[in-house]
């Protein structure tokens, strides 16, 4: 089984016996998308909610461009559009003292990811979001299993 790391702003897919891993999710949101039937999965590490006028940037950085790009990548790798399900993790606020409620990037990211999953009619099957701790997220492509871990806590399935 190979470990495939997904860096900030990246989108990676696999149809093999792999685990897609993203570490250091703070206010960012990790999105795991998979087709449990054909055992194809993909992961995005979303940095901000909206791409606005940032057309030259990589699509994986922003929720509104990352969700369609991830969908397309998983379908291209053999996933069936109608069978895709999603699980998400992240969107924490690591510096609550410095953050005005209206500027909570983590919560904005979570809301944007959920909105764009809904717009593309992908059911959200699990989440571990918010709080004040960073997270690591793993998607075991063959099992369709998603695990999440924060510092000082056990790995848990969502």
């Amino acid at each position: 089984m190979a470990e495939i790391f997904v860096n900030m702003g990246e989108i990676k897919v696999s149809a093999g016996d792999d685990v897609l891993i993203t570490v250091g999710l703070g206010s960012c949101v990790g999105v795991a998308l998979y087709d449990p039937e054909s055992k194809v999965g993909g992961m995005a590490h979303v940095f901000l909610a909206a791409s606005k006028d940032r057309a030259d940037s990589e699509p994986g950085k922003f929720a509104d461009t990352a969700i369609p790009a991830l969908l397309e990548a998983v379908v291209r790798a053999g996933g069936k559009r109608s069978q895709l399900v999603a699980k998400i993790a992240g969107g924490a606020n690591l510096f609550p003292k410095l953050t005005q409620a209206s500027l909570n990037v983590g919560l904005q990211n979570v809301a944007a990811v959920k909105k764009h999953l809904a717009l593309h009619k992908v059911p959200l099957r699990g989440e571990d979001v918010g709080g004040n701790s960073g997270r690591k997220m793993l998607l075991y492509v063959q099992k369709g299993k998603v695990m999440v871990q924060s510092i000082g806590s056990e790995l848990r399935e969502i």
């Binding site: 999710l25 703070g26 206010s27 940095f47 960073g134």
Partner: peptide
């Protein structure tokens, strides 16, 4: 102050 994964801290700063 945050005691956490370096990536989580740094990306949160940049995103904010």
């Amino acid at each position: 102050l945050a005691i956490d994964m370096a990536g989580a801290i740094w990306s949160s700063i940049l995103a904010g």
